[in-house]
Amino acid sequence: MDDVWNNFDLVVRAFGMTVGLFLAAGIASLAVGLPLAAMRVGPVAVMRRAAATYVTLVRNTPLLMVFIFVVIALPRIDITFKSIESFQEDAFGQVFISAYFFRATLALSLYTSTFVCEAVRSGINSVPLGQAEAARAVGLTFGGTMTQVVLPQALRATVPPLTSVLIALLKNTSVAAAFGIIEAAARMKYFNNRTTEDVQVFLLFALVYVLLVEVVSAASLVLERRWKAAR
């Protein structure tokens, strides 16, 4: 354990990477998942079908296989995302996004966006039919029905399933360990290789994960309480 305490900055940086992946992939999956959900419930049949096919395919693929596609298979057809590195050197300077980080974020977002889509869709589906009918009956326009009646309720109903999706994403960032990212799981492997006190090292890393998960669920609980309304 001394080894871990003496190199604690490595642990902090590894969890920083975990959180960084979580934030980057979380934002990207929301950005992809919301339009996907819109396509999935929209009026255009082809879009509905296309989105449904994408969601079914990716949801049933193990995340590890998505990683293999992005990290191992894409370079075979000359897609390495190396251009991202060279572009930044003169653009940002300080914040450096490596091709590894980008690929891991891409794989995580491709996977998670399908679950975001399903969570949002279930939120929209949970709004009782009568609500929209009543809104139309009192003469609200389509825009009014959506913004005043359907979406506010759908948004509230989306928080709990979206939270479980984001928590799963937080845990799924560990898969990046197998593809060249030194995040928490890879760092634990590094310490496990050097010590005999595997159990203590594992407990330390596991408890930090538990803490991070608690932070996410506490944040969602705050949102849910704030948005709670009598139904």
Binding site: F115, S122, S126, R156, P160, L162, S164, S217
Partner: peptide
């Protein structure tokens, strides 16, 4: 099952979110 740590999720919308 309710999402992790959420105890007062009475929205009934947890289904369909899918487990991961």
């Amino acid at each position: 099952p309710t999402p992790f740590g959420i105890t007062d999720a009475d929205t009934g919308a947890t289904q369909g979110g899918g487990r991961i």
